[in-house]
Design a protein around this nucleic acid. Structure first.
Length: 264
DNA sequence: CTTGTACCCTGACCGC
DNA sequence: TGCGGTCAGGGTACAA
């Protein structure tokens, strides 16, 4: 579930937990970096998104930080709902509970007593993300443009799906060295990033069915952006812009989808 | 600094 | 049915 639009949607759905007190916590997976006794009795002050991280500020001493990685989910639900692969439960005084569910166990939960500090790049939904900022990053990069979009130390929040989608909208081949993009291409990419992320957030993100994600018994509504995908997972289908067959290529060990004809 | 690779996990799916 | 290979929205450690 986890790229910027999905995490943003999730954080919004968790807001009813703000102001509630955790009266008990269950940590079902020992590898998680938190102990139940360090959470019990704390009140949730704020829940915010930082890039793809979910930061739950607790009263007094610290931030509980969740990263969903590939298969993690969080949901706010009535306290008796158990699900398979539940790794942590925060029971709230409202009668709800926050469930952290993660089949693959790649997700992380850590308590940062002094607050969450991590060097992250520019969040593309903030005012600091400008055409000029993108141009500067591209000019300084020696990577293919797709790698730059995925580098969380430079631009924080974009993942594999939205990198592929924004490059398609901008008509840019993901393998192009970032520093070779023209001013017009930078402008097109900047525009595409803003438009695609905004649309995805509006549609509550992308919900990929099938596979590991399919057990979902969530109180949270599924996103619908999967219906708007133009290249991601569309191998062999006709490009919506020019009709050529969408290709799947491997970049840095991960799948990228692009149109061989109109992405140059 | 950069890039590539392995690895962390589990489950679904495809071809034989 | 079973088996093996491949794939999956992410990030990190390490080597080159």
């Amino acid at each position: 579930m986890p790229e910027l639009p999905e995490v943003e949607t999730l954080v919004r759905s968790l807001q009813p937990a703000v102001g509630r007190t955790i009266f008990a916590a269950e940590v079902l997976d020992r590898r998680l970096g938190v102990l139940p006794e360090s959470l019990a009795g704390r009140t949730v002050q704020r829940i915010a998104r930082r890039a793809k991280y979910i930061v739950i500020e607790l009263d007094g001493r610290g931030d509980l930080v969740v990263h969903l990685r590939m298969s993690g989910r969080l949901r706010l639900d009535r306290s008796e709902r158990e699900a398979k692969y539940t790794r942590m439960i925060l029971h709230l005084d409202s009668g709800d509970a926050v469930y952290f569910v993660d089949p693959r166990r790649l997700g992380t939960v850590d308590l940062h007593p002094c607050g969450f500090e991590k060097p992250l790049g520019i969040d593309p939904t903030t005012p600091q993300f400008t055409t000029g900022a993108l141009a500067t990053l591209a000019a300084a990069s020696r990577s293919p443009i797709k790698q730059l979009l995925l580098d969380q130390r430079k631009i924080a929040g974009i993942g594999n799906i939205y990198a592929a989608e924004t490059l398609w909208w901008a008509g840019i081949d993901p393998r192009r060295p970032a520093r070779t993009l023209t001013t017009d291409e930078i402008a097109a990419l900047y525009q595409a990033i803003g438009a695609v992320l905004a649309d995805a957030i509006r549609q509550l993100g992308t919900t990929l069915g099938g596979s590991v994600s399919d057990y979902r018994t969530s109180a949270t509504k599924d996103g619908s952006f999967q219906n708007a995908l133009c290249v991601y997972g569309q191998k062999g289908l006709a490009c919506r812009r020019c009709g050529a067959q969408i290709e799947r290529v491997i970049q840095a060990g991960r799948s990228t989808y692009c149109c061989p004809s109109c992405q140059t």
